[in-house]
Design a protein around this nucleic acid. Sequence first.
RNA 1: GGAGGGAUGGCGGAGCGGUCAAUCGCACCUGACUGUAAAUCAGGCGUCUUCGGACUACGGAGGUUCAAAUCCUCCUCCCUCCA
Length: 417
Amino acid sequence: MKFKSDFLNIMNERGFIHQASDLAGLDAKLSEGVCTGYIGYDPTGPSLHVGHLYTIMMLRWFQVCGHRPISLMGGGTALIPDPTLKDKTRPLLTPESIAGNIESIKTVFSKFLTYGDGPTDAVMVNNYDWLGGARYIDFLREVGTHFTINRMLTFESVKMRLDRELPMTFIEFNYMVLQGYDFVELYRRYGTVLQMGGSDQWGNIINGLELGRKMDGAALFALTAPLLTTSSGAKMGKTEGGAVWLNADQCSPYGYWQFWRNTEDADVGRMLKVFTDLPMDEIARLEGLGGAEINEAKKILAFEATRLCHGQEAALAAAETARKVFEEGGVGNDLPVAEVRRADLMGASVADLFVRAGLSASKGEARRLIEGGGARVGDVLVSDPAGQIDGAFLSAGGPIKLSAGKKKHVLVRVIES
RNA sequence: GGAGGGAUGGCGGAGCGGUCAAUCGCACCUGACUGUAAAUCAGGCGUCUUCGGACUACGGAGGUUCAAAUCCUCCUCCCUCCA
């Protein structure tokens, strides 16, 4: 498939397109001139994670192709629990925590998009600006008349609750109305004609699209990206039980680099397409590398992805640390550092040390790690969990490298108090 | 409103008076093999421990018993069928 617009061509060849409302119409619209498009993010946590990055890259390409991206923070909708496909109602977040989350998340966007006042500069908006002060009766009269309950009941998230006779509260039921209204508001304020998002947002996006047509007669478009999974079927962006965060204070550049470095062979090509802006022919070359050579592609993926999120310098440092640690078996500056008080180590066992350093969740776990032959102190295998820590060793000065398994390393720095 | 069924570790799902910290699968962790990959194989997978054990756990609260995840009562929440 070949499009007139650069944006859709890129989306297509890089695997960002899952569903679209009117591809031909959108293509025509995009090739006419500068368009404005948005993606909404709910600030329900202090950081976005790799799962969100997929759609952030869509905004990035949108801007690169000469359009104006809007990152919408759902400061208003986050006050309303999104009806989950799970059985339970999400807990209500406080306005304070949402405001804090927004501040924390904002910093990430500026890494990927260029904000400003120019025609294709990105804009950051918060739907609390229009939802927060909305007057109930007015809103119902203006917007509520366009939603039929009949239709709302057919939505998957609603249907599932009702089918299982689980409670769905009225506040949750309102979520889709508010989110749909965002599209109208952004159309009015910025002439926004396109909403993008993950495939799970399709229903919500279409709601907004139809609302815009009914209320303003607007020709709006929807574009969603497929759910991204690894070849093994796991949801993308989870590692060691936790999400891979985009904020540096929640996931260090080195940890981020490692996440990408550990991509499965079969996924390297797709990840390069989605999470880097390397040219397609370069990606094709990297993808074609066989056997152990594909490790080079993974390093490039890790570097490029880290560069986008944390900057060139941090990416270089992370790569250098990884080289020292994995290729030389040494120590790198970027390894996580755990500070442990000297007093806490007096008479402590090796197992205690691993717990203090955060490499093991409990002493029992540390014991198993050590007994299983997975623990190293200063690159020396330790086998006795109850073994005492050599005091002289600890006071020798420089930090000591602890390793749990082959990939997890922490530098322990002993502090006095 | 009536009649049944169920709530077990991150998830799924056994157990139905002692031998149950609880079979098994998934997920997760470690080791081997490798390429910081996948697949495979092996081990582990509540907390503490002087490694003898101790403690906390099977929706919640009581009770029966030498002994309960298992039996009884009440409560909460879910599911199915009938109105």
